[in-house]
Nucleic acid binder design. Structure first.
Ligand SMILES: [Zn+2]
Ligand SMILES: [Zn+2]
Length: 719
DNA sequence: AGCACGCCGACT
DNA sequence: GTCGGCGTGCTC
């Protein structure tokens, strides 16, 4: 048998491929099993190239070719190469991150099959059961049904076997097919004047990036749906990315109801086998619409015609651990490669996308009218400085809440701190409960009577006495959602209160059960964290209260304003019911701070313009590119030493981009590791890339001992 | 990364 | 004598 030499990438952080002898008919993009290393352990690899010769003399043989057809197309391989280069990751690791978990091991990529029963002869048969089965099959699509459906209808193997003997029915193996929504279909809505303009301005035949600025409730989804419809009508496929928290059953339902065809859904809640199933449906061309979160950007659609990224500013598009990439940017690159349009939608676009739109790189579209709802409410500041606080809320705030509840409306109280109190102190000696593994205070969770670290997961039962002076006077300092809810329960004794945060959402039933607890009509208080701000429309809210408008402004993070404004704008979008104008109260100790007045007077876009100016002055993204090399080690000097050594080598090589540091991370110690950062700022993206690649080779050749390092390109957490 | 190999100390 | 600790170096 003739053979060829295959370059194979494996799921290890090695920036090289390995040459193996393979059967001459293998193709690039197929997975193979190889004997690897001195112990010849069997590993799955991906063929990334075929060559005639290798500089290695004793090549091993590929053990098994796993895929009859490549699991990666040439375009996907090219995309993987781009990601590996841009984010400084090993190609093999990128490729494996693009595959569903099951295909990272030696599982088959062929379509799943099930046994079906097909009607051959509909003749008179003795038993009534047999007769009923024939009737059932006769009525079914294609006169056939899957075995599981037949079983579900109560037919036994015996009935089936007798019918097969009579040659009335036959068994066949058929590919599994994705299910189609059989419930009520939803007709497409007549677009508003604004929607029609947007729909008219986006031409699917023309490649390019479109930024759709649409305030909450302005009908962005309807625009998506009608564009997808056009895309499908042109015989192409559509990919829709949605943030983790927004991809709810209701969202999926909305798409299913509009399109009488199967839709693949790829979200993080799927089991490995469900995820593989969905992925195989996409791979084998059985769906034309893919709905998914971050990693769905890699869905193997072969005939893509449109990519949509909903809530494009959402930080969950950035993968933070393992393989790092920004799915929104990968989506843009993928669309560019395919020569197709990509639509980014948001009520609070990222400064990156706004800059691209305002500089003419993206096409700008907007939806400013809320369909069937009152205008976005104004934000009203509440000065906390001299206020008497109950549950963290000023008298004025409580009064307003009282009014709204008395009118039978619902009120949302937002506090981005879960637990009872963010720290615990001894009143007689001043001892503070610190995490033994992190530079962080332990958070008191009163209901479970535990002290927990929100950074490393460490927890311990709440002590009865101060470990330092034995005094029993241990008190919680500050306010979390748990405590706020408890106090509000006393204040508003007859009002149902629902708390929505990670602690309550992790209980059985999850967030869906909590939302179901919100009464359909009548007053209710909904208390919660970040989780409340995104997704999950609660219809009867007329007042939103932000307990601490100053939280999150203490750091060095230049994205803090942008993120806070996005949060406040999103939260404000929750308020308002039908034509009833909603209200938003933001409590602050600095109510006159320009951040608030700007947001109130000039809105998100006006503020964004201002921040973009500041970023330009400060040579920060999106004008300059930013990357961070992070280094962790068990002793505080190790990480800094590695980075100092790196800086020395860079200086020697006459580095011509800005290098800052090493500096300790905002939380210098986390999970028993000391963390140091090295910042890189460059006007030119390619220069940054070049120097990062150089850093990577330096670090790979450096004896970093116990220190581990990673490169974060376009970081969102800067501290 | 993950594994084999190897060179040392502390156990039967 | 050997079991296992981690430090070193390689993987086609
Ligand atoms: Zn004490
Ligand atoms: Zn901790």
């Amino acid at each position: 048998m003739t053979s060829t030499i295959a370059e194979i990438s494996i799921n290890r952080p090695l920036f090289q491929s390995f040459d193996y002898l393979a059967p001459s008919d293998v193709q690039v993009g197929q997975r193979v099993v190889i004997p690897y290393g001195r112990g010849n352990q069997t590993l799955v690899g991906v063929i990334t190239g075929l060559v005639d010769e290798s500089k290695f003399s004793r090549l091993k043989h590929v053990q098994q070719v796993l895929d009859p057809e490549p699991v990666f197309s040439t375009q996907q391989l090219a995309l993987a190469r781009w990601i590996a280069n841009y984010y400084q990751q090993a190609l093999g690791e990128v490729l494996f991150a693009m595959l569903p978990n099951r295909l990272r091991q030696d599982n088959s990529s062929e379509p799943n099959q099930s046994t079906y029963l097909k009607l051959c002869q509909h003749e008179n048969v003795p038993g009534s059961k047999q007769k009923r089965l024939l009737d059932l099959l006769a009525e079914s699509d294609g006169q056939q049904l899957s075995m599981s459906e037949v079983r579900l209808n109560g037919f036994t193997t015996q009935t089936i076997n007798s019918l097969i003997k009579r040659a009335c029915i036959e068994r066949l193996k058929l590919d599994d097919e994705p299910s189609v929504w059989h419930g009520e279909q939803q007709e497409k809505l007549t677009p508003s004047r604004e929607q029609a303009t947007v729909l008219n301005d986006i031409k699917l035949e023309q490649p390019g990036c479109h930024l759709l600025y649409g305030v909450t409730g302005s009908g962005k989804t309807e625009v998506y749906l009608q564009l997808i419809e056009r895309c499908l009508a042109a015989g192409k496929q559509a990919l829709v990315l949605i943030p983790e928290i927004g991809l709810t059953p209701q969202t999926v339902r909305r798409f299913q109801q509009r399109f009488a065809r199967p839709i693949a859904v790829l979200h993080s809640g799927l089991s490995d086998s469900e995820r593989l199933n969905q992925w195989l449906f996409v791979k084998h061309n059985k769906v034309d619409i893919v709905l998914g979160t971050r990693s769905a950007v890699f869905a193997p659609l072969a005939n893509l015609g449109l990519v949509i990224v909903d809530e494009e500013h959402d930080t969950s598009y950035k993968q933070q651990d393992g393989i790092r990439y920004q799915a929104r940017d990968v989506a843009i690159k993928r669309a560019f490669d395919d020569g197709i349009p990509v639509l980014l939608g948001s009520a609070t676009p990222s400064l990156e996308s706004l800059n691209n739109a305002w500089s003419g790189k993206f096409h700008w579209h907007q939806l400013t009218e809320r369909t069937g709802r009152a205008q976005i409410p104004n934000i009203e500041m509440v000065d906390m400085r001299h206020a008497q606080l109950t549950a963290g809320l000023a008298e004025r705030t409580l009064k307003r809440m009282q009014q709204h509840l008395a009118d039978g409306n619902q009120v949302m109280v937002f506090l981005n701190r879960r637990g009872w109190a963010p720290s615990v102190m001894c009143q007689s000696c001043g001892w503070l409960a610190d995490c033994p593994n992190c530079d962080a205070r332990l958070v008191l969770h009163q209901h479970s009577s535990q002290l927990k670290c929100h950074h490393c997961g460490w927890q311990h039962p709440k002590p009865q006495h101060c470990p330092s002076c034995q005094s029993p006077e241990l008190v919680g300092l500050g306010l979390g959602t748990e405590k706020q809810t408890d106090i509000l329960e006393q204040q508003f004794a007859n009002t149902p209160i629902i708390r929505i945060d990670r602690d309550t959402a992790n209980q059985p039933g999850g967030i869906a059960k909590l939302l179901a607890d919100v009464p359909e009509k009548g007053p209710a208080l909904i208390v919660g964290t970040q989780m409340l701000a995104k997704g999950h429309h609660i219809p009867n809210i007329t007042l939103v209260v932000v307990t601490d408008g100053d939280a999150g402004f203490w750091g060095v993070d230049y994205r803090a304003s942008e993120r806070m404004a996005q949060l406040l704008t999103q939260v404000a979008g929750r308020s308002g019911r039908g034509e009833r104008h909603g209200e938003v109260l933001v409590q602050s100790r600095y109510p006159e701070h320009p951040f608030f007045s700007q947001l109130i007077n000039f809105g998100y876009l006006g503020s964004a313009r201002h921040w973009l100016n500041e970023r330009q002055q400060a040579l920060l993204p999106p004008y300059h590119s930013h990357a961070i090399i992070r280094c962790d080690a068990p002793h505080d000097w190790q990480a800094a030493q590695v980075l100092r050594q790196l800086v020395a080598q860079l200086t020697e090589a006459q580095v011509n981009i800005r290098v800052l540091g090493p500096v300790p991370a905002t939380m210098a110690k986390r999970a028993k590791l000391y963390r140091q950062l090295l910042h890189f700022h460059a006007e030119s993206r390619s220069e940054l890339n070049r120097w990062l690649r150089y850093c990577r080779t330096l670090l790979q050749n450096m004896d970093t001992k116990q220190a581990s390092w990673r490169i974060d390109v376009d970081p969102i957490d800067v501290g």
